Computed example of a mutant assay.
Amino acid sequence: MGHIRLGTLPQSKKWREVVDLLEADASLDEVAAAAARASELDLGRASDDPAFQHVTSLLVQLPFWARSPGFDQVLAGLNFDPNALSSVSSLLANLSGSIDQSFFELGGSSDAGELARSAFLETLSVELRHRLPSLFEPTPQEIRKALASFSSGANFAPLARAFFAKLTYKSLDYYLSRELANHTGANKRFSDDAQRREFESALAQHTVEASRIVEEFAGGWYGKTIWKEQNLDQEAINKFTRYAFKKMRSELVRRREIA
């Protein structure tokens, strides 16, 4: 199976609708919903991309592995160095390097994989630091404990929500950022770059709010799939990500309809 390369939207009829909304100075809700509809096919296919699948498998399985006795062997198998847990920054650097190696073994990276990698590392950075002491540098044991804490349904839910919020925003921005530049300048939708960045920030917050729908089902899915059924296979994870994307797109459209 080939890697998913994004970027076909600007020629589509649905994307033309996004452009028309920008030109008409439509609301953020309308633009976000139209962009979600326009990107539905590409983002729906992302769950079938091997590079994307590798990242989402880490999202689901890394917390589970962190609470197991063989975690050191797992990290060695991921090509982490012995001091990978010396800091959050070191963990993230090793994780990024491991993902790079896996992408290479899969035959190369992909747009979908890179978006997922970026969203995953940013999410893990924020969520881990929320769970670690802020006054002193955390110990490797504390970092491992914080990572393992996401292996419960209640704690996996906000992790998954943050990941899909970032991933959805990055996916929409992947397409929108190029078009927004065409609508920046005198007598255009955005008078300058600062105004455009305000719109982008509002879009990011919009996806955070919409991602509540993911949090509502992610915890139950994790508890049922990982703990009750002991199912860590990739197809189960793929079904979860497909459903999460579907719910995010539906919620963005719904929010536009009630705005």
Rank of each mutant, 00 (worst) to 15 (best):
S87P: 01
S89E: 14
Q141P: 01
S89L: 06
N155W: 03
G153L: 11
S86Y: 03
T139M: 02
T56I: 14
F71C: 03
Q141G: 05
A66Y: 02
A76W: 07
Q101E: 10
A157W: 00
A93W: 13
L121D: 11
L115P: 06
S98W: 09
N79Y: 14
S152M: 06
S110G: 09
Q101R: 09
A76Y: 06
S90H: 11
L59V: 10
A112L: 12
A148Q: 03
L58A: 05
V88K: 01
F71D: 00
G70Y: 11
S57L: 10
L135W: 04
F80N: 03
N155C: 03
L92P: 01
N83C: 00
H130M: 11
S151V: 09
S68I: 10
P138I: 13
P158W: 00
F120V: 10
P69G: 00
T123F: 05
S134Y: 02
L106R: 08
V74S: 02
A157I: 06
E105V: 12
L59S: 03
P158A: 12
V60N: 00
A93S: 14
E142G: 05
T123H: 02
F156T: 05
S149C: 12
F120G: 04
D72N: 12
D100E: 15
D111Q: 03
P63T: 14
A148I: 07
W65S: 07
L91Y: 09
E137R: 12
F150V: 14
L95Q: 11
L91G: 03
S149P: 06
V55E: 05
H130N: 12
S96A: 12
F150P: 06
L121N: 06
R117A: 06
L124C: 09
R144P: 00
L115C: 09
S98A: 13
F136Q: 07
L58P: 00
P133L: 06
L128C: 11
A84T: 15
S152K: 03
A146F: 01
L124P: 03
A84L: 13
L128A: 05
D81Y: 10
L135Q: 07
L121R: 10
P82Q: 07
S118N: 04
R129F: 05
F104T: 12
L78F: 15
L85D: 04
F71N: 00
L95C: 08
E114I: 13
F136T: 15
S118V: 13
L85V: 09
Q73W: 11
E114P: 01
L91T: 07
D100F: 11
N79P: 01
L62W: 01
N79E: 14
L59A: 05
L128R: 04
E127R: 15
A146G: 05
F104V: 10
G97R: 09
T56H: 08
F104H: 03
E142F: 02
G108S: 06
A76I: 13
